[in-house]
Amino acid sequence: MNRVVHPIEVESYRRMRARLDTSHFPPLTRAVVERVVHSAADLDYARDLVLDEADLEKAHAALHAGAPVVVDVEMVGAGITRRETVCRLRDAESGPGLTRSAHAIRLAYEQVGPGALWVIGNAPTALEELLTLDADPALVIGLPVGFVGAVESKAALRESGLPAVSNVSEKGGSAVAAAALNALLYHPTSAEEKL
């Protein structure tokens, strides 16, 4: 099913591309970079994001084959269109040495098991907890925002060797994390391109 793109979005992308050349990026990388830049109106994301086309290709295939999508907060889930998400934050509790966000990640992993796409846009502790699990993710979109723990948790994600989309700076948040996942959802599969 093709997505109907509103004329405002078309014009917004035209203006963005007039200011930012993304033509050198491979297809899925370009899709993610452009959607993240568009969601934040922040051209610096083109230099701040860290991602790999091969990882994105595998994640795109897994996503379109029905792999579960787990989010750290409901705001990320609200931004993801065309797909149900798993968020266990309402069920989670904090305790000594464990934030509510980290507990929610544990609960989500118990529910979905390995092979999911994880989209973290809010809590660095959620990303840190995910890295302690044997989640074998299809992809981790690790874009938590903040001045405490965000940079460090994203660096740990990159060092883990897991397939990932992250960024170097403190920037991030629910909107950009959802945008990165939406880029993969919106990008056509091989079968759709043949139609």
Rank of each mutant, 00 (worst) to 15 (best):
R15P: 04
M16Y: 09
M16P: 03
R17Y: 14
A18P: 07
A18I: 04
A18M: 06
A18F: 04
R19H: 09
T22V: 15
S23G: 10
F25Y: 10
F25C: 06
P26K: 06
P26W: 05
P27E: 10
L28M: 10
L28G: 08
T29S: 15
T29G: 08
A31W: 07
V32E: 03
V32Y: 01
E34C: 02
R35M: 07
R35A: 08
R35P: 00
R35F: 02
V36E: 03
V37S: 10
V37P: 15
S39C: 06
S39F: 00
A41E: 14
D42F: 04
L43G: 04
Y45L: 07
A46K: 04
R47E: 15
V50Y: 09
V50W: 14
L51S: 04
L51I: 04
D52P: 03
D52K: 04
D55N: 13
L56K: 01
A59S: 03
A59G: 05
H60N: 05
H60S: 03
A61I: 06
A62W: 02
A62L: 01
L63E: 05
A65Y: 00
G66R: 04
G66L: 04
P68S: 03
V69N: 00
V69R: 00
V69D: 07
V70T: 07
V71I: 07
V71P: 07
V71K: 10
V71A: 14
D72W: 02
E74L: 12
E74Y: 08
E74R: 15
G77D: 12
G77A: 06
G79V: 05
G79R: 03
G79C: 12
I80E: 13
I80S: 13
I80V: 12
T81K: 12
R82H: 15
R83A: 13
R83Q: 11
R83K: 12
T85K: 12
T85E: 13
V86E: 14
V86H: 09
C87F: 13
C87T: 11
R88T: 04
L89G: 10
R90T: 12
D91G: 06
A92Y: 04
G95T: 02
P96I: 10
G97T: 05
G97Y: 12
G97L: 09
L98E: 13
L98C: 10
T99G: 13
T99M: 01
R100E: 02
R100N: 10
A102G: 13
H103S: 10
L107E: 09
Y109N: 03
Y109Q: 06
Y109W: 06
Y109S: 09
E110F: 05
G113N: 00
P114Q: 08
G115P: 06
L117V: 12
W118R: 05
W118S: 10
W118C: 11
W118V: 02
W118N: 06
V119H: 11
V119I: 09
I120M: 08
N122E: 01
N122Q: 04
A123Y: 14
A123R: 11
T125P: 08
